[in-house]
Design a protein around this nucleic acid. Structure first.
Lengths: 208, 208
DNA sequence: GACAAACTTGCACTCACTGCAAACAATTAA
DNA sequence: TTAATTGTTTGCAGTGAGTGCAAGTTTGTC
């Protein structure tokens, strides 16, 4: 039956996957993500085009090469967080975790710019993060003991995501301010209220 | 030179556009958005495929047929809001505006479901709302007298967007609770703080 | 009616992506 | 070692999106 992880097959698959992802990222950086063809990527990784599609469903997937481990770790953290840790705090820790890893890769800013510059990459990122958000929301709702359809857990997860996106974009246009600063300010605002003067009732039925 | 808006040409263009958008929506509802081909849409609207692409850059654009008027009105409202109206309140009013219009169209839920069910539609929607958000953010920053790179205006706009998405999804899975209820709860949370117990400093440097 | 500008169309092309079946390589059992 | 099994790669054929170009056709102007 199943082997001890270390089969030749397993290793080869990982290798091929890595080769494809690397080639995809490199070429995307060189020529711009919209001017790379799958054919080039496959060629650079020395496999057929058809094989490319055995590994990645879309070109963009290969460029992003999203690490499923990140989501796994995030979910784990969400589930095992100490009871006295507030929900947004957990989200904050998760984000910082990912950030740390990306930075150690040295790929953060290059990939970040790439993403922000290409609609189709943004597409992939947002779609896959939608899915992540759903799972995180489920985990958080459970942890908070809230029913499945309640607003707060979903809102916490999705606004945290929004905050990350805002921060990425701000950092891109004004790199002098460190990402962590921006991130902390954003989360602080989320936590304490983004607009304490909010009061739609005062102008009930705003007419056209 | 330029005419009084009412030229035959103008009218015909509007007609063709509407015919394409209608056909696209109808067919997408009938057969599922991913099983409609541009060819079918063009045929139903009685134009060539090539002409379809003169009107819409993507299939999804035709199905969404986003009304640029919405953004225009939103921007207008943002710029002309009374000084004493708080930022999030303005966003709230804008959202309710759009909601009202979509509902009167009778297309809200049908289109909404369609969107949530198809990745490629979601893609288009999110991309175009990204752009909307940028413009709204700029307008809001100006109104608030904040510098271009500041966090709060961007966060207000993008979390409001996130709230709308959360609400749409919740409403889809649990339609018994009216949209406006959900929306109000979400905005209230955004306004007053989503997690007042947030305190990352207490667990500084959470190690793995 | 003649002329220019705008719009439509067909055609040829590139590229993403899929299903299928044959070739091939790794694993396991004999 | 060999033979059977299973998983992976590949070529091929095909669908469909989307683009550029060079006619044609319509509409608006003089």
């Amino acid at each position: 039956m199943k082997h001890v992880e270390g089969g030749l097959r397993e290793r080869k698959k990982l290798q091929t996957r890595a080769a494809l992802a690397d080639a995809a990222l490199r070429l995307a950086l060189e020529k711009g993500p919209d001017h790379v063809t799958v054919e080039e990527i496959a060629e650079a990784a020395d496999v057929s085009v058809r094989t490319f599609f055995n590994y990645f469903p879309h070109k963009e997937h290969a460029i992003l090469a999203r690490n499923p481990e990140h989501l796994e770790r995030a979910l784990e953290r969400m589930r095992t967080a100490p009871a006295e840790e507030s929900p947004l705090t957990t989200m904050w820790l998760i984000v910082h975790d990912v950030l740390r890893e990306l930075e150690s890769d040295g790929q953060l800013s290059r990939r970040g710019e790439l993403i922000m510059s290409s609609p189709s990459l943004l597409y992939q990122l947002m779609l896959s993060s939608l899915d992540d958000e759903r799972q995180l929301t489920a985990a958080l709702a459970e942890r908070m003991g809230e029913p499945a359809g309640s607003v707060r857990p979903a809102l916490i997860v999705s606004t945290a995501g929004a905050a990350c996106r805002v921060v990425m974009e701000l950092h891109k246009t004004a790199p002098e301010r460190p990402i962590r600063d921006l991130l902390d300010e954003a989360f602080q605002l989320l936590a304490q209220g983004i607009d304490t003067a909010f009061g739609p009732d005062h102008q009930k039925k705003g007419t056209s």
